[in-house]
Design a protein around this nucleic acid. Structure first.
Length: 201
DNA sequence: GACGATCCTTCAGGTCACCT
DNA sequence: AGGTGACCTGAAGGATCGTC
């Protein structure tokens, strides 16, 4: 079993509310638990979906995440942002699932058109066949991301889609901040290489 | 030819220094 | 804080060689 060991928290109002709810959950307050689920289920489900990209498993794993939150609530100490702790649990369960099934995501992940601006050229929209190219590019981006190694994919997702800081990503993935920088750099390099034909046209 | 041991190459991950 | 590149390290796989 993976260790959950949050570090000192920042302390926004959102965080404070999460901590308050977690303390109530720790006493067995089911209403607080329901509220906590409502507040974060889209974050968890979204992250699982992007990481796992298998619609059939997303709900199941998201459910497991909150079951683990419920079980751990009594021992929870707010030493990190609640969402960091929550995403660490999510990451552990997703990695377990990926290792259990020994597979890569099989269904393209959902990406916003502007989400991977790192590999898009501004000129794309000005071309006559822009929409066709955009669709093709979109598919290529999705495919390229799903083919990245687990750690690169997870770091990229947490950075681009969840907008987490390097420190938070490092905490969630159990790595140093420089390691995260390196992983993200390689992920972007890999994406550029895979999407080179779109960049060079 | 089959095998095991050793060496070499490649690649991903990590750290550090530096830049923006 | 975030991004980049050089460099180091370790693991994995392939190539080579010696022995049977």
């Amino acid at each position: 079993m993976s260790r959950i060991d949050p570090k000192p928290a920042g302390g926004s109002k959102e965080d404070d509310e999460d901590v308050r709810l977690m303390r109530l959950v720790g006493t067995g307050d089911t209403h607080a638990f329901e509220e906590l689920i409502q507040r974060h289920q889209s974050l968890v489900a979204g992250t699982v979906a992007r990481m796992l990209a298998s619609n059939s498993d997303v709900e199941d794993i998201a459910q497991q995440v909150f079951i683990r939150v419920w079980k751990s609530a009594g021992r929870y100490t707010p030493r990190a942002k609640f969402t960091t702790w929550l995403l660490k649990i999510t990451r552990n369960l997703v990695f377990n699932e990926l290792r259990r099934t020994k597979r890569r995501p099989q269904v393209p992940i959902q990406t916003e058109p502007d989400a991977e601006e790192i590999v898009l050229k501004d000129e794309t929209n000005s071309r006559p066949d822009a929409s066709l190219l955009e669709n093709e590019l979109q598919e290529a981006i999705e495919k390229a991301i799903t083919e990245l190694p687990e750690s690169q994919r997870m770091a990229l997702i947490l950075r681009r889609y969840e907008d987490l800081s390097y420190e938070q990503i490092a905490e969630i993935l159990d790595l140093s901040v420089p390691a995260i920088k390196s992983i993200l750099f390689r992920a972007r390099t890999e994406l550029r290489a895979r999407l080179g034909k779109y960049l060079n046209t």
